[in-house]
Simulated scan of single mutants.
Amino acid sequence: MELTIDESILKSYGLNHQNIKIQQIGSGHINRTYLLIQTTGEQKKYVLQEINTHVFTNPEAVANNIKQIADFLAENFPDYLFPAPLAANDGSTMVAFNNAYWRLSPFVDHTIALDTLTAPQQAYQAAKQFGKLSRLLNDFDSSMLQETIVGFHDLHLRFDQFQTALAQSSQALRAQAAKEIETALGFKSILTEYQSLKDSLPNRVMHHDTKINNVLLAQHTYEGVCVIDLDTLMPGKFISDLGDMMRTYLCEFSENETDLSKITVRMDYFAAMIEGYLSEMGDILTDTEKKAILFSGKYIIYMQALRFLADFLNGSVYYPINYPLQNLDRTKNQFKLLIQLVKNEEELLELISNCLIKN
């Protein structure tokens, strides 16, 4: 079935709907994304997205953050590929139509976005690209940016939300999740460490969503090209980006895997990811940050487990599910990954040390 977009949106960018072919693309769960192909004259491709205002309640802040960063990079690093949204006819980078917000970005040809990692080199290239963006923005004043999702990676907030869900949940749900609740409380030391550490970590411009399909790789060589999905570019700590890479790169299987025997840490992927990140950020990170590299994985994995568990206790109202116990299974999955990280801590710290020496 051929897709259609209201022609008023296309006209806002000087595009003629009669000359545009539309395909829905992307595997993300937040924004709806379309590929636009101009069918007459010089073939041009664009990416059109409708912003999910239930998640991004202040879309103007998203647009403003990206524009500030795009302007900074264009002035200071003009050769860096940053696929920022294109200007509409009125000069804005976001178009409002029928209570929805849309933006148009250039399509980066001859690239792919992977949904799963199949080689350590891919982890290296992805981590290098996220590290490179952080390095280039090292002199950008992050306080000029707004939080596009307030408290997104605030572990204290997420723990409080878990406790609230626990207090308000039904007895039946608490009974089903009894073991996971015990595990969550048993790992509370991660929250304590976060609270004592966070003020000593400098604020930086962070991507906050560094899963593998948010970086474009060259189609045939898998060399890193650029970072995409820029909505959560906002002030944060480096543990957000590196921790999310650990959560999503280290295990061969996603949080939806129910066979917990498959949830293991791939040491070669870990080493490749750390080496790729430090090849860009090794001279930028402070000594305190370097000591917190492994903690970043514990922090993000624990936080995501808490979020899945809180949602289960709330009746699964936030994360989409395919069966009633899915959020509980996701919780078990993430706690298994966290346990694996802790179990292999000595070897992982040695790998980090070797990478720090190299970089």
Rank of each mutant, 00 (worst) to 15 (best):
I228M: 01
F238T: 08
L230A: 07
K290C: 14
D268S: 13
Y323G: 04
M281C: 09
I300D: 03
I321W: 08
T232E: 04
V225Q: 13
V225L: 02
G297S: 05
M273F: 00
A305P: 06
A271I: 03
T232H: 09
T232Y: 05
L250C: 06
G243F: 01
Y269M: 13
L306H: 00
M246V: 04
V265E: 09
T248P: 03
S240F: 14
E275N: 11
L285H: 09
I300S: 11
L306C: 06
A310Y: 04
T264P: 00
D244S: 10
D311L: 07
T286Y: 08
T264A: 14
V317L: 14
P320G: 12
Y299V: 02
M234W: 07
R307S: 03
Y249T: 03
D244N: 09
Q304S: 04
M245N: 07
M246Y: 13
S240M: 07
L233D: 10
L313P: 07
L230Q: 10
E255S: 01
L309T: 05
F295N: 04
D268G: 07
G236T: 11
E289Y: 11
M273S: 14
M245E: 05
G297F: 03
R266E: 15
E257T: 09
N256G: 01
F238K: 02
M281Y: 01
S316Q: 14
I300F: 06
